[in-house]
Amino acid sequence: MSLAEGVAGLLLISGSVLLVVAGVGIVRFPHFYTRLHAAGVIDTLAAGLFLAGIGVLFGATLGTVKLLMIFVFLLFTSPTACHALARSAWLAGLREPAATIENAEDSKSAGEPR
């Protein structure tokens, strides 16, 4: 087994573990809003590790560029879909019984860029 294959295997296996764990989270978490977070893990880190692993296998080819594009596309669309889901659930009146609403108005604003 070459070095590239070893690295790719490591990335793929850790990505697989994340996928399954996040899948468990989607089933196990108690409420819709909490399940959104588990789905977020799949869209960011698990997908990233997976695509990076396959990219290592393909080396510096056009295929790797395409994988990168898939990843960037996922990064752009997944928060949009996620936010749209959360917002429409919120506007439709879905509330989480256990959750409190906290106002963090005056907590911190130092270190602003302008």
Binding site: L18, V21, A22, V24, G25, R28, F29, P30, H31, Y33, T34, H37, A38, G40, V41, E96, A98, A99, T100, I101, E102, N103, A104, E105, S107
Partner: peptide, 20 residues
């Protein structure tokens, strides 16, 4: 988040809304 999913106790989840 992975730590929360894997923790056997369910009281690690403290969902809350933040208004900032």
């Amino acid at each position: 988040v992975l730590g929360v999913i894997l923790s056997p106790r369910s009281n690690k989840i403290e969902p809350h809304f933040l208004e900032v």
